[in-house]
C-alpha cells in the first residue's frame, strides 16, 4: 500500500453504526404510524376520498398524484401533491 493508500485507508463500508441508525429511523417511523393508527391501506383510502373531493373543484392529474406521510422533527405530516389542470366551472 502506497502513501496515498495509507492516507485514504480501506474503502468505506457501511458501518454497524450507520446500519443501526437507518434501521432505527425506519422502525421508529413505523412505530409512530402505528401509534397514530394509520396502516398503509387506510392511507390509500384517505387519498381516494381526498381526490374525490378535490375533483369536484379542480380537474386533477390523477396519474401524477402523490400522497405520503413524511416526518418533520417529532411530527408526522400528511403530504399530498395533486397537480391541478384547471378549475372546474361551478
Amino acid at each position: 500500500m502506497g502513501l496515498l493508500g495509507w492516507l485514504t485507508g480501506p474503502p468505506r463500508d457501511v458501518t454497524s453504526r450507520d446500519e443501526a441508525k437507518k434501521r432505527l429511523q425506519l422502525t421508529i417511523f413505523h412505530d409512530r404510524m402505528e401509534v397514530m393508527e394509520l396502516p398503509p391501506d387506510r392511507l390509500n383510502a384517505l387519498r381516494d376520498e381526498l381526490l374525490l373531493v378535490i375533483a369536484k373543484y379542480f380537474e386533477v392529474d390523477i396519474g401524477r398524484t402523490e400522497c405520503t406521510l413524511e416526518q418533520d422533527e417529532r411530527e408526522v405530516a400528511f403530504v399530498a401533491n395533486i397537480p391541478v389542470k384547471r378549475l372546474r366551472g361551478s
Binding site: S16, R17, K21, R74
Partner: peptide
C-alpha cells in the same frame, strides 16, 4: 466505540429523538 463507528453517537441519538 463511537469513534470506530461501532456505536451510535450523541448526534445520531439526538437527531432521531429530536429533543
Amino acid at each position: 466505540m463511537v469513534q470506530s463507528n461501532d456505536m451510535m453517537g450523541v448526534d445520531d441519538v439526538v437527531e432521531i429523538l429530536n429533543i
